[in-house]
Structure formats: C-alpha cells, structure tokens
Design a binder for these strands. Sequence first.
DNA 1: ATGGTTGGTTACCAA
Length: 263
Amino acid sequence: MRLVTWNINSVRQRLHLIEQLTKDYAPDVICLQEIKAQNKDFPLAEIEAMGYTHNEVRGMKGYNGVAILSRVPLENGQSRDWVGKDDSRHVFATLPGGIEVHNFYVPAGGDVPDRDQNDKFGHKLDFVDEMKAWFPEMYSNDRPMILVGDLNIAPMEHDVWSHKKLLKIVSHTPIEVEKLNDAQNAFGWVDTMRHFVPDEEKLYSWWSYRARDWRAANKGRRLDHIWATPVLTPRLKHMEVIVDARGWEKPSDHAPVLLDLED
DNA sequence: ATGGTTGGTTACCAA
C-alpha cells in the first residue's frame, strides 16, 4: 500500500502536479491539504479520470480544505470540527484491511509567536492541545491507524535548516514543539519519516516561495508528517520526500511525502 | 531590519 500526503496549495491550480505524481509514483491513497475549494468546485471528474474513484472531500471557500483520494474503497468517511470552528482541517476514512487514515491541516499560526498579540498563534496552540485531548477517544497501540498532514510544526533540530535561527519563528518555537511532542508521545505514535532517516540528518518537506533559488539555498523545514500506530511498525517498508516535485512546473511550496506499507 | 512569492477573492488576507 502506497500512501502520499501533500499540501497542494490549491487543487484547481495544480491538477497537472497530481497527474504527474500519479503517473510517476502510482500511490494508492493521496491525502491533500489546502485544496482551497468548496466541495462543489472540487475537480472530482478529473481526479476520477486519474483512477481515484473513491474520495472523501472536506472543502470550504477560499482557505484550508482537505481531501482523501483513493484507488481503493474508503469506508466510514468523516470529519470533525476543531477549536469550535467548522473550517475544514480534518477528514478521515478507513481503508480495506481496516487502516484508519486521518488527514490534518493544522493552522499555520501567523507570524508573531505570542498568543496575546496574535490570535492565530493561540488558535494553533489550542488546536494541537485539542488533538492530544481527542486521541484517547480514538487511539490504541494495536489499532492500525495513520495520521498524516501539514502539521505546520518542525519539531526536531534537523527538521529545519537552522535550529538557532528559527527558535523564534512560528513552526519551530519551543512551545509549539513541546505541544506537538506531547500529543505524539503521550501515545505511541511512531514518526515514520524519522523511522527511516536518522535524527541527525536534515529532512525537509517545505521550501518557501520567497527564496530566489529554493534548491540552492535549501532553507527547508519538515512541516509535513506521517505518524503510525506501533502495530504498523513491522509493515513500514519505504519512505521518501519527493523533493523533485518542489521543482515541477508551477509547484506547491510543499513536497509530497510518500510511505510504502507491506500488504 | 526588511522583503521576498503565491492563491483566492475582490481590493487585501492567509500562508
């Protein structure tokens, strides 16, 4: 089973990228974030023509929006509101074989890392707290579950190009990192990307549009994640960040992250 | 210290 998570930054602007991904990598399941379209504007026919005939879409006008696209049947598709807002940041469904896939788009949190000065940062912190508070309702070490998405937090020193320079930059501040680590470690969530790549090795999934030459500068951050329950650990086969996709025509600022599981 | 790019919506906001 091949699964991909990708912040697509507008599904309507980037159908060509999804097509390229499906041709080159043939994922069974694609979890998208920031589709930036209402359900009625989602390009379902085009996606179905690529072979993804089972879909669970939670869109809204203008912002956010998440979707699970699948070549295999999805069951029990659902979504949930977070921090009292109906803002299309979570969708989940069950794959054949019983793996429950949760697709999240955590708030970016604005620029100022202080909840008294910046409501968006407070919203982000509350969102991660609420994830942790919700896990007891759904989490079990021996239930096959995968949590993916743009979590907008790069928790480890080598998840960013400069740990020191980013300590006060939203996405790598100690308070966000602590909250994300709390949510992960209070349960048995396995960071599948770091299962394959040593902690001391740089690993990024996002490069800003604002860099003159993103590849040469390589000032990336690992904002996108794939977590799994421990029962799936023996089945983890392969993981890669498809860095090349950041250089495709009219790219998203995020690269897809791919995980292969043994059947 | 500042500005750099992109998308969606509607003349700025969010990232």
